[in-house]
Simulated assay, not measured.
Amino acid sequence: MKRILSIALFLMGAAGFAAAQITTPTTDVLGAHLNYGRGCAACHAPHSGAYGNGVAKTADTGSGNIALWGEDVGSLYGQTIITGKSEHGSYSETLPSSLTAGTPDVAGVLMCLSCHDGNLASGAMMQNKVYETLPATYGTANNIPTLLGSDKGTAGNYLNDHPVGLNATMGCGGPYDWDCTIDASGNVLMTGAASSRFVTNYGFFVSPGKYQNKPVVMCTTCHNQHLMNVVSVTQGTIDPVTKLVTAGKTGLPSGSYATMFFIRAPYNPASTTAGSNQTAQFCRQCHGGESNEMAGSTAGTTF
């Protein structure tokens, strides 16, 4: 009887993970960044940078020199924006003065804002509406804005957005943080008792930038601009005794998982599973103080 029960529980768990996975996405993974059919060339101009993308005059004299970037970012150079507030206060980010600045906020923030700012950089073809079909639980707010500096509120207000930039550092050991450590190169090591358990239960998929040997939050920390609706997961090695991941960044079974909004981890608010907490788990990768593990709960991840 015990053997039958164990097999039944295993099959139920396997079925749950299978339901969370997408083996064959039915739409192009580039999603909204197909830009009405223009595809990769909407952001990356194979010739002549922003000029090659139809910009007649640009203040960005280095346009296209990095990543063949085809959007005019000249109006953003050296601008200071005050990004979102947190328990630590608000954050000041002075954008790089060129695409060759060499800091992580070039590709991690500046390039993103060339399309997603709407205030200082308003020339890109953004419609300021969400591309994806939203779950019914989102209510009637179907036009979720996609611009940081012009989001139907006060023009130039960035405080209602998540902090990003070279001053938006990630920490360990504080009242709001994980029991993790940061090594000399700025890597976040989820090796504490609670943080390592979280990696087994969900994972650590975020990609912080590194500045002055500290991990910093970029737009690309949470978002993978090339994959809108799916994320490929590779399970790490799980210790047979402790059941913790000893190599790799997740204990989830390998496979393709549903995501939304270009989030770089399993994230599916459209899940119909009662008690699904995967979207909360994504945020807890950095906000460890609000996690099950740090609060002493044994809850894992429910898809």
Rank of each mutant, 00 (worst) to 15 (best):
Y36N: 15
Y36V: 08
G37Q: 13
G37C: 05
G37L: 06
R38H: 08
R38M: 11
R38C: 04
R38Y: 06
G39S: 12
G39I: 11
G39Y: 13
G39Q: 14
C40V: 15
C40I: 15
A41N: 08
A41T: 13
A41W: 02
A41H: 06
A41R: 05
A41S: 12
A42H: 12
A42I: 14
A42L: 07
A42M: 07
C43Q: 08
C43T: 08
C43D: 03
H44N: 12
H44L: 11
A45E: 02
P46E: 10
P46R: 09
H47A: 15
S48N: 15
G49P: 01
G49V: 02
G49Y: 03
A50R: 02
A50H: 00
Y51T: 01
Y51M: 11
Y51F: 11
Y51R: 12
G52V: 03
G52E: 04
G52K: 09
N53L: 06
N53F: 04
N53P: 00
N53I: 02
G54E: 10
G54Q: 10
K57C: 07
K57E: 10
T58P: 03
T58K: 09
T58W: 04
T58R: 09
T58S: 15
A59N: 14
A59Q: 12
A59I: 11
A59R: 13
A59F: 05
A59K: 14
D60K: 01
D60N: 09
D60W: 01
T61P: 00
T61R: 03
G62K: 06
G62T: 07
S63T: 12
S63R: 02
S63F: 00
S63H: 05
S63N: 07
S63I: 00
G64E: 03
G64S: 06
G64D: 03
N65V: 13
N65E: 13
I66N: 09
A67T: 06
A67E: 06
A67W: 07
A67R: 14
A67N: 13
L68R: 10
L68H: 11
L68P: 01
W69N: 02
W69A: 07
W69Y: 09
G70F: 05
G70M: 08
E71T: 00
E71S: 06
E71P: 03
E71Q: 12
D72Q: 02
